[in-house]
């Protein structure tokens, strides 16, 4: 790893844990080449972490899945952690989430195991620094793209993490998220689905089941997609000629168990789809642990668009 100008080594990885990945907003303009989107699985929490740390939209955060990560600050840092409660502590003292805090040189920031949710986002004022690959530092292991090394590697013990040198002026904006913005990931979520073209090909019984069942999150769940377990959905079409798949697309393979596709999904696929989750519902699903229950609700694009634009307006302004 070569040090770029305007960056500084700031953090040492004492223990990497199962999965910690560098994620900016993702890789765009390259999906026609078969390159996936990447980016934060929970863009809602990621956006809050950046905002509270005083960073602009799109800055790179660490996405910490499940916990187990231990980091040592090599200088005084301003940070924010938003998303799952993974039992984070600073030198053994519990760390408040959803607000800006100071992490002093030499202190150990440790993540334990999930109390609520699955993924948390650590943002450091200035933003993590790495060389972009195809326009992004988003880390996708399967494609060997992005991350701190450029080759899609997750964090490893002993890594030194660089950040962009923060501006001297103090960060503006809120330093603490209002209560209503902090999500309770223990609550079973209702996920908004915009119906897609093949929805009429599912049997009436299957459509009833799709929207009136508590679906259980399978343990086959990762950044590519989340499989839901429940009644078998039947579709009159078995497979399609492969076509593009958008974020949140809910496909139903012949076994009748839906799969909601997330950031690292393949770019094209050929299973019929119920539709696509709204971007914020896809983020919410990414916080579900295996065994957790979710509901699907069909929505028109109007209210979903208003909600999403309100969300983006807070973070993308300026």
């Amino acid at each position: 790893m070569t040090q770029q100008p305007g960056t500084q080594t700031a953090i040492r990885v004492q223990r990497a844990g199962p999965l910690a990945l560098l994620q900016d907003r993702g890789r765009f303009g390259v999906r026609h080449l078969g390159v996936t989107q990447g980016g934060p699985a929970d863009s809602y929490s990621w956006a809050w972490a950046n905002y509270l740390a005083g960073n602009s939209w799109g800055s790179a955060c660490l996405e910490i899945t499940f916990g187990g990560l231990q980091l040592i600050a090599e200088r005084d840092l301003e940070i924010a952690i938003a998303g799952a409660d993974l039992g984070a502590t600073l030198d053994g003292q519990p760390v408040p989430l959803w607000q800006r805090i100071t992490w002093k040189e030499g202190q150990k920031l440790a993540f334990a195991t999930p109390e609520s949710g699955l993924r948390t986002y650590l943002s450091v004022r200035g933003g993590f620094a790495a060389e972009p690959v195809m326009g992004s530092v988003a880390c996708v292991g399967r494609e060997q793209l992005g991350g701190f090394d450029g080759w899609g590697s997750k964090l490893a013990d002993g890594d030194q993490l660089a950040i962009h040198s923060p501006e001297r002026k103090p960060a503006e904006g809120m330093t603490e998220a209002p209560d209503q913005a902090r999500q309770d990931f223990r609550k079973a979520p209702v996920l908004e689905l915009l119906p897609g073209a093949q929805i009429g090909e599912f049997t009436g019984r299957s459509l009833y089941d799709a929207f009136n069942t508590w679906w259980r999150v399978d343990d086959r769940a990762d950044r590519m997609g989340v499989r839901l377990l429940g009644p078998k959905l039947q579709c009159r079409i078995g497979s399609l000629v492969s076509e593009g798949i958008n974020l949140g697309g809910v496909q139903v393979p012949p076994d009748g168990q839906p799969i909601a596709l997330l950031n690292d999904r393949q770019t094209i696929g050929g299973y019929p789809r119920l539709g696509a989750l709204s971007p914020l519902s896809a983020s919410r699903l990414a916080q579900c642990l295996p065994g957790q229950e979710v509901r699907l609700v069909a929505r028109g694009s109007g209210p979903v668009l208003r909600e999403y634009r309100n969300f983006l307006a807070l973070f993308r302004a300026g």
């Binding site: 999906r31 026609h32 492969s242 076509e243 958008n246 094209i268």
Partner: peptide, 18 residues
């Protein structure tokens, strides 16, 4: 425009919803 995904029989157009 955010992304275009051409395939055998289709083109998926992804745009900026803002």
């Amino acid at each position: 425009l955010v992304d275009l995904v051409p395939s055998y029989t289709t083109l998926m157009v992804i745009f900026d919803p803002v």
